[in-house]
Design a protein around this nucleic acid. Structure first.
Lengths: 148, 148
DNA sequence: CTAATACCTAGTGAATCGGTATGCAAAGAA
DNA sequence: TTCTTTGCATACCGATTCACTAGGTATTAG
């Protein structure tokens, strides 16, 4: 499955924000861009989309920045990608002329809609909290990676 | 979900072939392109991919054409799209630098791999036979669309 | 005031997509 | 054999999208 860089950046950034959610601090785009190794200017555009979708809220000015609009367990990967990855949720256009009645409907019902539904269900079942926890399991400096 | 025209053409063409599978006849690209309303030259390229993936077999020369390589109930939508739709099955590249240990792994495990798996399961569960049957239910000239 | 920050709009090079053009290769028909 | 029908291969093209850059404006804490 192709997932755009924009969507992946959004996911990485919001996961990172989820780990710092309880502090209540604003998080700046530049700090995220540095810790993730992503272009700051591009990440700004990603956050513009996340704000429009009400995944994050913002505060302008000095000491400003972004915060998750809701607790991490209430934000799903679906919301983040929906806001940022266009091709993932693009409408499938018509394929054939109506010389072939029924083919269009069959494809739509049994394939396209079925896939869309499966993807949506999968993404909706994963929260930023889940992802942040999963992330902690995989950091290399966690401490329970040792040898006897 | 974005699904490329190439993949949709492949699906439409193989569904159409499935309805004529029992005759054993070769089916020409030009007849399919006309009945589906698709460019013949482009459809040829699609069939080149389907043949490489052994979804169809071919015979050259006069009275030649293509046939499904196996019975329609043994060919899944997954196979057809796998052969023709690149972006659907594209590998997701790395997103973040390793300044952020664990984020990459969390996204991959809980999101990308999960979605890929859901899509594959869904598509594998739909055969060309299923699609051909579904198609027949939806043709407008079926006869059980009447008014009292 | 000043510095830090979000926010807005336009542009750009590369890649991809959908499609065309052209011709060769093979196999059956005449 | 020769002709016609079909598959097969390659190169090319215009439009669109993608990832990203550039350069500004607006707002707010200190």
């Amino acid at each position: 499955m192709r997932i755009s860089a924009r969507g992946r950046y959004a996911l990485a950034a919001t996961i990172s924000m989820a780990t710092r959610y309880d502090t209540g601090d604003n998080i700046t785009v530049i700090s995220l861009s540095e810790s993730l190794g992503i272009s700051k200017i591009y990440l700004e555009q990603v956050f513009s989309l996340l704000k429009k979708a009400e995944v994050v809220s913002s505060q302008k000015g000095a000491q400003g920045g972004y915060r998750l609009a809701r607790p991490p367990q209430d934000i799903s990967a679906f919301e983040v990608l929906w806001a940022t990855d266009l091709s993932l949720f693009e409408e499938v256009g018509d394929t054939v002329k109506d010389h072939a009645p029924g083919i269009e409907a069959a494809m739509r019902i049994s394939v396209f809609d079925a896939v869309d539904s499966a993807v949506k269900t999968t993404l909706s079942g994963v929260s930023l909290k889940t992802l942040a926890d999963e992330m902690k399991k995989h950091r290399k400096d966690q401490g329970y990676m040792f040898f006897i």
